[in-house]
Nucleic acid binder design. Structure first.
Lengths: 118, 118
DNA sequence: CAATTATTTCTATATTTCTCGAATTATCGA
DNA sequence: TCGATAATTCGAGAAATATAGAAATAATTG
């Protein structure tokens, strides 16, 4: 169960054009992930600025990294992403399911049960 | 279709413990909404500080207000909420649906089609 | 119209966050 | 070990954000 503090950290991390772009890039990249250098290249960010952003996303639990030779590969944490969405939708339309049925369905579906979902 | 600029505004608005609490309170309140004073009471915020927060959430498109007598009633914008979730999940696991099936379902469901959904 | 209640705006200060240049650490190949 | 490549850390200045006191606006009641 995600707490408000964690949610604020995750939302803060994503509330920045550059970091949001990076995160969505990693979401698309899936488990394969992307080397920091490739991300910098794709987004046109200076390496040190990007590194600061990756650090913030990592501490927010939204991404994680592994070293491969000289490169550090970053990838999205789908479980954390799912947890954040679930938190945001919690108690949505409580008592009035007619208001936002599809969103409520989303909340129920918002657990990442698939095998490979890290 | 939500753009990155809008998403960053919405995420920034939510990336604050007090505002996130207010938003979730309004999500629970549904269409009935809540008067500013009641929100201040429920969250223990000074009226002026709360007003600044409500203003930020409003400009981000996440909530809207209507006047009723002396009170101003605030309520969540479920359509905007849904749009933000959809944006965050866009292209999730593209090419590898096995990674995060439930989340992908969420993305497809993330449009608020219900009648009363403002 | 005066008093009361509800909320917002104005203004200033304190704090946090962002970005970049420079220096540092880590890994690999010759 | 030396040089090259990949990424991170440090430090400082600039910019954005948060909070609160005081004043102002809006709507209702006597």
């Amino acid at each position: 169960m995600m707490e408000q503090t964690d949610a604020v950290a995750a939302l803060s991390a994503l509330a920045h054009a550059g970091r949001l772009e990076v995160f969505r890039l990693l979401v698309k990249a899936g488990h394969a992930g992307m080397a920091a250098g490739k991300i910098a290249e794709a987004t046109g960010t200076l390496p040190n600025t990007l590194s600061a952003g990756l650090n913030i996303l990592t501490h927010a639990g939204l991404i994680h990294s592994r070293r491969e030779g000289r490169s550090v590969i970053y990838s999205a944490d789908f479980k954390a992403m799912s947890g954040l969405l679930t938190f945001l939708m919690e108690d949505c339309c409580s008592g009035e399911p007619a208001i936002c049925g599809p969103v409520a369905d989303l909340a129920r579906a918002g657990t990442c049960a698939a095998e490979g979902c890290a």
